[in-house]
Write a protein that binds this DNA or RNA. Structure first.
Lengths: 149, 149
DNA sequence: TAAGATTGAATTCTCAATCTTA
DNA sequence: TAAGATTGAGAATTCAATCTTA
């Protein structure tokens, strides 16, 4: 692959993610939410028994230490609740509170609408191709080795 | 476009950027650099007269307040230097120090090698298609309006 | 008024070290 | 020892407010 094209490809991936993250904040902010917190709500909404903090960190691909603070803030805001795992005293299971679920139900439709608008006009075929390339890039990104400097 | 596919597309863009950012830190960290700082070095390396902080913020698409702290830390580390703009007393022109340039020259080849590895196996045609879709997504992302909630 | 830069508060993130329980 | 969670420090980010100069 042409070197210049490689750079452009990576640059555009980063720029697109950046733009989308930035714009999505505009949507979440009026609800006192951040993108990270929305992701947690989204995850917990379909987990009847809650999730351990480790599971949350694994799915969202963030550090465990990160999850602690995130859940701290959300618990303080009354959106989630920590409870003990009956089987393992080390584990904190995190569940949505009723208020958290109400908030999620309120924000989700707007988020969906925005995704619709952003992806409007893209063909399914094209989108599938892009998804395939992105997955292949991710596979390559975890495999590289430090070149000798 | 199918709703589920829309979500997958956006999710994979975010995941790819996330993965790449995380992995690139592994490369930068031994040099005491972060991805944001590397971007600044890269930008300044080809700007003989330096750049104003506003220009840096515009290209890197970060907040002006962000540039202040970033340049603070890099100046403290001796990698860049602020100087006054002869034409406009409000402007701080930021330039690479010799040490900053040496660092950039040392790190850049590794970064290029990593990009090569990550994009290896992608066809030019495919890559151009992906770039086009990403640009179109970015255009859509800055245009959306808050749906009525 | 407007533009460039700065500051402060809050959130997020990484990394290393630590604490508790398995 | 290992695993889940926490803590603390440093970096990055956003937003709002402020300061200086144009």
């Amino acid at each position: 692959m042409q070197p210049e094209l490689s750079f452009e490809l990576i640059r555009e991936v980063m720029a697109t993610a950046d733009t989308f993250l930035r714009e999505s904040q505009r949507l979440f902010r009026p609800h006192g939410l951040t993108a990270a917190q929305y992701n947690v709500l989204n995850l917990l909404a379909s987990a009847a028994d809650g999730l351990s903090q480790r599971e949350i960190g694994d799915v969202l691909v963030v550090d465990r230490s990160n999850v602690t603070g995130l859940i701290d803030r959300m618990e303080k805001a009354g959106r989630v609740k920590r409870s003990e795992d009956p089987a393992d005293a080390r584990v904190h299971r995190v569940k949505l509170t009723p208020a958290g679920r109400r908030l999620f139900n309120k924000v989700q439709p707007s988020y969906h609408a925005v995704i619709d608008q952003v992806t409007r006009g893209q063909s399914d075929v094209r989108a599938r191709e892009v998804v395939a390339v992105l997955k292949s890039l991710q596979a390559g990104a975890v495999d590289w080795r430090l070149p000798d400097v």
